[in-house]
Amino acid sequence: MTETFTPPTRFAVPGRIAVSNRAAALWQTATLTEIRRETPRASTFRFAVPAWAGHLPGQHLMLRLTADDGYTAQRHYSIASAPDDDGHVELTLDHVDGGEVSGWFHTRAEPGDEVQVRGPLSGFFAWPGDRPALLIGAGSGVVPLMSMVRHHRARGLDVPLRLLVSARGPEELIYAREYGAETLPVYTRSAPEGVPVGRLAAHHLASLLAEEPEGGWEAYVCGSNAFAEHASRLLVRAGQPVDRIRIERFG
């Protein structure tokens, strides 16, 4: 049993789950089985990974592409699919300008192509479905949060779950057709008729934090660094404890 030093400072957010180091160390072949367009800039890529060890919502994996001269490029990607997807995982990737890996996915990839993955990785942003979850994401930052929403739905969980998702406009809202009563979209540039346009703000959080469930919310924030800074400051100002805010920033 390893000891764990506890610092004499206010503690950061503890990990949620024990992580399998064996699964994380092993590269596996993932075979692309399906590509679904989500928005003009984002598509979902479904893979068969027969020996996938399983994951929890919120975890990510590392993906590697190899050129014929042996050159490799690897990136971390959040897993979009819920855990109960028998040997399959789904990733939703933005087409990044000049993106070496996302560019291949959006311009070359076809069903049947093989890539390498390792994971699942990191237990910090994982949500096992236990605590009430307040999910706040922007752009493709909604991807790991959607895994939580899908898990919540697939298992019929009673624990409260709310999703605030920020997008520039309705056409850029990833998974738009899948959201239900748990989700409030926030549109920053253009919105459907009758829906206000504006940035995520204190009033979006106020009612959710006011209806605080037993045990309090566990907040999960995912998006660009600028969005994560903005959303986490709003949460702190609204009274959400610092040690109940988990942040995953793109990088």
């Binding site: 190899t66 050129a67 001269d69 490799t72 291949w104 192509d113 890539v115 390498q116």
Partner: peptide, 12 residues
Amino acid sequence: MNVTRGFTGRPR
């Protein structure tokens, strides 16, 4: 080596 079809990557 598991070569990814059609992947060339950045200039070396």
